[in-house]
Design a protein around this nucleic acid. Structure first.
Lengths: 381, 381
DNA sequence: TTTAGCACTCGGAAGATAAGAGTGCTAATT
DNA sequence: AATTAGCACTCTTATCTTCCGAGTGCTAAA
């Protein structure tokens, strides 16, 4: 079923109003609030059609209508307004990033805090572990006798460090020597291919008692292995509880736990899937222009209701069932990807109820992405 | 008003039952559930007395009673059972700490996760910034040309690091030279006394263009200043919403925000105040025996209801109004301090409704404290 | 094709009623 | 003098009814 202009108009009105009020929308309230040149009876007919088409759902016979997942899909794909962020808002976001910040991890952390605060939803970010990630550096610093900081630098500039116990008798020079040898041997090796044996063989011939040496090597090994664990950042998790859609505290608590614990994995997984499906729901890639919102908003002036909107492929929206994780079927994800030319650095998502303010979320997340990119690339200008 | 044995018994029963059921407790239900050799009428009289004494509150005329802050205070100070954790539980907690973990920061992070999970409340931790904190080391590692990791080591072994932009043309050797000079000059200086000028004067006479040098020095300065920001860890914030006492989602959201944002500060503040007041509510220090629970539990066998319990001074309980922060007046804090002989390393708190299961919380937090200490001190054994 | 009109549906708010748990007081009991 | 049984009274909460109104689908007229 293709939607003609009138149906699109009505569908847009329903979704807009439902997002605003969270009450089922009836035909009368639509003609009242949208100065549409039709009678409520006509609107009623159109709405009945939209329901047959699967875009709307009637919670019970004598109630108004509510968008279905398909309805939301159509809305985000082609119906909604997408006004750019005001300059004031942009400045606000920009100014809440410390200009000295260039590390992807704190940047993502900041991003989720800002997004959750400005959108009022929950934000997640994760620096994805890619199978090609390899080690580039392994350094040791002595903090105090017996304690050393082991620094693992991964391809892509990801830095992880860990405080470890080392034998008291070893000097910084000895530790650095060991680290150097190990680094020379394993640098360039994919993380998952590094074993304790790999590390052990790096230091053959060194003049140290085996037990001491092994202690250090083991700590190095643990540090490297631990670098595989990608950190997930969550912001505004309690915002989940603010929305009427999540009245059931128990259910919402389950969602909160799921997101806190596995949020990173979920986003990572969704994005991997996305690669396979090649932007299934978004159609063709638009090219990599950096400004979603301004871009797409311009299309809108052509027609009262835009015909089709194509998001750049670093952008993804998943609605309800599309997420394919049962406890999240009342949620939507808006996800974007931070990347350099050849490497994915992180995914940022905003999670909210299906009736979230997509509008606002998309503009914000798009701009936050831009800002993060600016920080990452500042020295390349 | 001094409480005789019978009053104490009844008060204990009321608090126990109220904690268990969260319903106001009536005289009948007490005689039913506690095989007390009294009639409900007698109990009623006693309860009326307790109410006059300010230990109990009647929500409305024809309802049972609920403990007041004073009632809870008496309960935690002398009435409640304090059975030690089962060995199984202990083992469980111990095993959920990575044995290789020796860094206070990840340890605190782990601690709040475990505590929030096992108690079902919210946990907070903070590594307190003490005015005597000084810098002991400043190191630089080159991550890639133009990017360096600046490591700041503070007294007490706290390690902070930060990725910074540095001029591409500088070599690792040059950077390390700068760091060494700065370190030599500012090591031992209290953090708050370090200024940019202090740093600048450290490197006089070095053979480098001023603009390059200043860039590096500035980044070092920022890194040092940033080390002052003590990180706060929060676990199980959504548990707040699970308790009937926090029905009002708006109110609870406000509490959640407050804790997430300022939780560390609040705990830090409470503990500072505590020092001044010298354990006001807990009386004299018991000495620093490490096991609260077993310790205090043993007293109990003497009398059906213990007379007075004294917590060691690394232990603090704040109930309702005692917290003196308005939005938190329906909460209680149970806080403990991790410390070495001469230094406070962190505070850990569990926050819940006033009718939290103090029992369980105290045993858990006490044991978690012990476990953290064990990890911190493992090499001193 | 659109719209006015109408009978019908159903959820939710408002009010009424009943049940139950609790209280305080008094008088009897120990 | 302390304890307890008994009783009248209070007040919340759950349940049931009633009723309003927004919304619907259908039919017939414009």
């Amino acid at each position: 079923m293709l939607l003609d202009d009138r149906k699109r108009l009505i569908l847009k009105a329903v979704v807009d109003d439902y997002i605003a009020t969270s009450e089922p929308i009836g035909s009368k309230s639509i003609v009242k609030n949208h100065d549409i040149n039709l009678s409520s009876a006509t609107v009623r007919n159109i709405m009945a059609d939209l329901e047959k088409g699967g875009y709307l759902i009637q919670p019970h016979t004598s109630a108004g209508r509510v968008p279905s997942d398909k309805g939301y899909r159509a809305y985000v794909d082609s119906l909604m307004d997408l006004p750019p962020l005001t300059e004031k808002k942009k400045a606000e976001i920009e100014s809440s990033f410390d200009p000295n910040l260039i590390d992807i991890q704190p940047l993502l952390k900041r991003a989720v805090d800002i997004l959750s605060e400005t959108t009022g939803y929950t934000a997640l970010a994760v620096a994805p572990y890619t199978p090609t990630t390899h080690l580039t550096q392994l350094k040791i610093l002595m903090i105090e006798p017996g304690r050393a900081l082991i620094v693992v630098v991964l391809s892509g500039g990801l830095v992880k460090n860990r405080l470890a116990r080392v034998p008291d008798v070893l000097t910084l020079e000895q530790l650095m020597l060991i680290a150097n040898l190990v680094e020379q041997n394993v640098a360039g090796t994919k993380l998952e291919d590094i074993t304790f044996v790999t590390i052990e063989t790096s230091v053959q011939g060194i003049e140290l008692p085996e037990s001491l040496l092994n202690q250090v090597l083991y700590e190095a090994y643990v540090s490297i292995k631990q670098a595989e664990n990608l950190e997930t950042y969550v912001g505004g998790i309690t915002n989940l509880f603010r929305h009427q859609d999540f009245r059931d505290v128990g259910q919402t608590g389950a969602v909160a736990n799921l997101l806190s614990k596995d949020g990173g994995m979920i986003i990572g997984y969704m994005n991997k899937e996305e690669d396979n499906q090649a932007s299934l729901e978004a159609g063709e890639d638009l090219g990599s222009d950096d400004e979603v919102t301004d871009d797409v908003a311009s299309e809108e002036s052509a027609s009262p209701v835009p015909i089709a909107r194509v998001y750049p492929n670093y952008f993804m929206i998943r609605i309800g069932q599309e997420i394919a994780i049962e406890p999240l079927e009342d949620c939507s994800f808006v996800t974007t990807t931070c990347e350099t030319k050849d490497r994915t650095l992180g995914h940022i998502s905003v999670v909210g109820p299906k009736r979230m303010d997509y509008n606002n979320v998309i503009s914000h997340i798009g701009f936050v992405r831009r800002t993060v990119h600016k920080h990452l690339a500042a020295d390349e200008e």
